[in-house]
Nucleic acid binder design. Sequence first.
DNA 1: GATTAAATCTAGTACACACTAGAAAAGTCA
DNA 2: TGACTTTTCTAGTGTGTACTAGATTTAATC
Lengths: 205, 205
Amino acid sequence: MKKSDRTRQDILDATASSLATAGYTATTVKSIAETIGMQDASIYYHFSSKDELVGEVLDIGTARAVTAVDQALAELQGDHDPREALRVAIIAHAEAVLGGGDYPRANVRTFGQLPPDLTHRHRQGHRNYGQIWTRLIDDGVESGALRGDLNRSVARLIIIGALCWAIEWFDGAGDVTAADVGEHVFQMVVNGLSADQPHQHAVSV
Amino acid sequence: MKKSDRTRQDILDATASSLATAGYTATTVKSIAETIGMQDASIYYHFSSKDELVGEVLDIGTARAVTAVDQALAELQGDHDPREALRVAIIAHAEAVLGGGDYPRANVRTFGQLPPDLTHRHRQGHRNYGQIWTRLIDDGVESGALRGDLNRSVARLIIIGALCWAIEWFDGAGDVTAADVGEHVFQMVVNGLSADQPHQHAVSV
DNA sequence: GATTAAATCTAGTACACACTAGAAAAGTCA
DNA sequence: TGACTTTTCTAGTGTGTACTAGATTTAATC
C-alpha cells in the first residue's frame, strides 16, 4: 500500500472523528492536520478542498449505515414478520450511528449544519436510505401488522428522528448501550408506552 | 416605549429568524444588521457581543416552549388521565417548535452547534424543561397507565428527540400541520404502530 | 432654539479561516 | 550512488468574522 493511501486514510479518519464530535464549523483543516501531525497545507495534496474531504467522509458514513441495516435485514432470512424486520433495522441503525464508528456519527451530527453544496450532494443518499424505511413500513401496513391510519412518511421520519436525535444525548458511558436505545425506540414506536398492550415483552434496562 | 427598546426587539427578532433558518454559524452580526437596515457596528450599542445576543434569543425560546407546554397542561384541569396529559404536552411542544415563532425554533435548530459557553449557559434551562417530561412519564408509570419496564430517561429523550428532529424535515407547506406531527408522535410513542391495539382512535392525515 | 443625551455610522483592528506557490525533504528504484 | 517521483513544509494571500474607537447624526429636554 502506498504511503499516500495511508495518509489519505488518516486524514479521513481524523476528519470523521472531528465531525462526529465537534461538528462541521469546528472541524477546521488546521485542526485535522494537527491531529495527524501535519501542516494544514499538506492536506491539499490529498484533497482539493475541505468540502471535498468532508463530502467523502459523509459518503462513507451513509454507505456504512446502509450496509449495517441491509445486512441485519438479510440475516433475518426466513422470518417475514414485518415487526421483527422493523426491530432489527432500528437496532442496526442505532448501533451504527451510536455505537459504531465515527463515519455514520459524522453524518448525523453534521446534518443541518452543512453548506448548501454539501447538503445537496447528499440529498440522494438520504433519499435512498429513507426508502429502506419506507419499504419496511409499507410491508408492515400492507400485511396488516402495522396500523394504516397514520401518515407513513411522518411515521418514518419520526422513527428516524428519534434515532438520530439520540446522538445528542447518548454518551455510551452509562449502562445503556446503543442496542438498548434501539430496543427502546422499537418498543415505544411499535408496541407503545401504554400499559396492557399485546406484543409486549419485558425489557430489562 | 423608547426607540432603543424597539430597535433591540428588532435585533432579537432578526436574530431569532436567522438562527431558526440558517443556524448559528451562518447567523453573522453583519447579516442581522442588514436585515433591519443597520450597520453591524450599531448592534454593539444594544448587545455587548454576538453570543450575548444569541443567548438572549435562546432564553426567550426556552421560556416560550415551557410556557406553551405548561399552559396546555393547565387547561386540562380536572382531567387526570396521564396519557391525555402526555398527548397534550406533546402537541403543545410540536406547535411551539414547529408551528410557533422563531424563538423556540432557534433553540432546537442550533442545538449541538453552539460554542461551549452558550451550551453551558442553557444546560439548566434544558434540565428544567426535561423535568416537565420526567414528571409526565413518572405520573403515567406510577398510575399504571404506562408500562414500567422501560428506562424512563431513555423514553423521555426519545419523545423529545422525535419532536426536535422534526424541525429538520417539517416545512409547514404540505397538508401536515404541526399539531398533526404531535398527534403522530403521541399515537406512535404511546399507542404504538402495531395494529389491533387498544386505546387507538383513527387519525385522519 | 440651544443643550444634552441617545443612537447610529465610518473606518478601522485583529484574528481565524480556506487555500496557493514554490522550495525542501523523503521515498523509490535503476 | 544518483536521478526521479512523491510527499510535506514554509511562507505566504485573500476573505470573512467579531469587535472597537471616535466622529456624526438623530432624538429628547429645557
